[in-house]
């Protein structure tokens, strides 16, 4: 189903949903990471992402103009109205799988926000400019771990390869363009994501080389997140995240 939001609001919601769903996933690690320092860094990234989600979903609601705020969008939409990319909803798996997801996504998000910080629509530009500082740190953090795990022990290398292998099929979707992107560009808010691909490839390849890892083989892309066609994982994530709002309708927290 196509999202019920008008195109520019949908564009903001896609950005917000990416950050929200990934932040939610990282929150699952809290208290369970391989070392205290890692626990703190993952929570830190989660916190940044929840902040971004709050801004972008708030903007989506404001553009829609139907009285929905960020919480209403986060906690009262079902799977078919969520428009995050499939990559961010993938399960944490082991630490290498979590790092693979973060690495691939944060480099995309960094390139996206570099461009978005320059767009004419100041609302989008301001959120992107603020988030860019955070996201550059996320990309560095994840890249450092890809290198450590890739060029660590035999076991860590095998796990890093498996993690990248799990995530790789969802990377093409990051750069796919559709009518919503075109409308956002026309409105002075959007970024040509297809044009980010070459820089993303270069950044990812440089880190993989340092990590002594081969680039995963190209494969058939799995897409659909932007128009509400998700993996089975998202429904479970939402049922957990939305539980209180659904169980106590109308309550304020």
């Amino acid at each position: 189903m196509v999202s019920a939001l008008p195109p520019l609001a949908d564009y903001a919601a896609r950005l917000g949903d990416d950050s929200l769903v990934l932040g939610q996933r990282l929150g699952e690690w809290c208290g369970h990471a391989p070392a205290i320092e890692v626990d703190l860094s993952l929570s830190n990234v989660a916190l940044d992402l929840i902040g971004q989600a709050t801004h972008f979903l708030g903007l989506a609601g404001a553009i829609e103009g139907a009285g929905r705020d960020a919480d209403k969008l986060a906690f009262h939409r079902d799977v078919m109205d969520f428009s995050n990319c499939l990559l961010v909803e993938q399960p944490n798996g082991d630490f290498a799988q979590t790092i693979a997801r973060q690495f691939l996504f944060s480099h995309y998000q960094a390139l996206l926000f570099e461009q978005m910080a320059q767009v004419k629509d100041e609302r989008f530009a301001a959120i992107a400019a603020k988030a860019l500082k955070e996201v550059n740190y996320h990309a560095t953090l994840a890249s450092d771990w890809v290198v450590r795990l890739g060029d660590g022990t035999d076991e860590s290398k095998a796990r890093m390869i498996a993690g990248l292998d799990w995530m790789w099929r969802f990377t093409d979707e990051l750069f796919a363009m559709d009518d919503v992107d075109a409308a956002a560009i026309a409105a002075g808010a959007g970024v040509d994501k297809a044009a980010l691909r070459a820089d993303w490839d270069a950044r990812v390849d440089a880190v993989l080389a340092e990590a002594t890892l081969a680039r995963p083989a190209a494969r058939r892309a799995i897409v659909g997140g932007r128009v509400g066609r998700h993996s089975e994982h998202l429904g479970h994530l939402l049922s957990e995240m939305q539980f209180l709002q659904r169980a106590y309708p109308g309550a304020s927290w």
Binding site: L20, G23, Q24, G27, E28, C30, G31, H32, I36, D39, L40, S43, N44, A46, L47, I50, G51, A53, T54, L57, A70, D71, A74, F75, E240, M241, F243, L244, Q245, W253
Partner: peptide
């Protein structure tokens, strides 16, 4: 941490994440 993924709204989720992170820092 048991409630981070179920916090009732975005503000509470961010506060709880920051709080639990503080506890880790104290440790």
């Amino acid at each position: 941490g048991n409630w981070i993924t179920r916090a009732p709204n975005l503000r509470r989720k961010a506060i709880l994440l920051a709080k639990v992170q503080d506890e880790g820092g104290h440790g």
